[in-house]
Amino acid sequence: MKPPKFEYHAPRTVDEALALLGRYGGDAKVLAGGQSLMPLLNFRLARPAALVDLNRIPSLAFIEESGGGVRLGAMTRQRTIEFSPVIAQRVPLLKEATRWVGHLPIRTRGTVGGSIAHADPSAEYPAVLTALEGEVVARGAKGERVIKAADLFQTYLTTNLTPDEILTEVRLPAMAAGTGYALEEFARRHGDFAIIGIAAVVVRDGQRCKTARLATAGAGPVPVRLRAAEEILERDGLGEAAIDAAARKATELVDPDSDIHGSADYRRHLTGVLTKRALVRAMGVARG
């Protein structure tokens, strides 16, 4: 488990990093927290000619409020997010999700940009990005573009970022005060990737539900927005029967795979269980 030979660069600016990526014509990889990339290198499953290390680019690590949302630099550590007052106030769902990401040492190195660019279907951040309808900013030789969550994730470990692009920023709309939210997850062992995770957001208006957002982790090759289940809630409100119906619907909306930790049937079952748990808890914190 030693990586094959690669060249290593530690640029100080995004422009330098982009120039390096260009030079290798798709045969270089950017290194963020390394928590997913290093194992891939050590298993020799990835064999880039070079690594372009983003860890020495200060401009990529920040958390800022802007307009109606929060911008996070791609190199913001998961551990920073976990303790950020801005995140706690504006996007508390992201804070809650962070608790589920691996273990303390992993969150200390792991970054928000790395997690999203890596696009592990069982990871929490892609589910949160999907539930909140966030966006990412990518920069490449041809300039900058903004990609919506719904367009970003293609399949397992694959986004529509091109190899010469760097994800520079993650943008999340602020959750209005009183928004209900929860992230429910099931893993066999504390800190493991989710077998199933459900991110839920509800905006209440008395007994009515103005907006519901549900997204999955672990239920297929990409995060799944459970739109038809959301519609049940937006139509029928947040009573027990509606939540049950939405949870049932959720099980029909996913097409998970089987692996040694859980069959497709079991994952589908869990999708219903956790959808219900997430909605009940989200409703509990919702005001309005």
Binding site: R188, R189, H190, I260
Partner: peptide, 16 residues
Amino acid sequence: LLSGTLMDYVVPSACE
């Protein structure tokens, strides 16, 4: 071998 890493061969941690 399908359980060829410690992500797939699940040993208990302190939490379990």
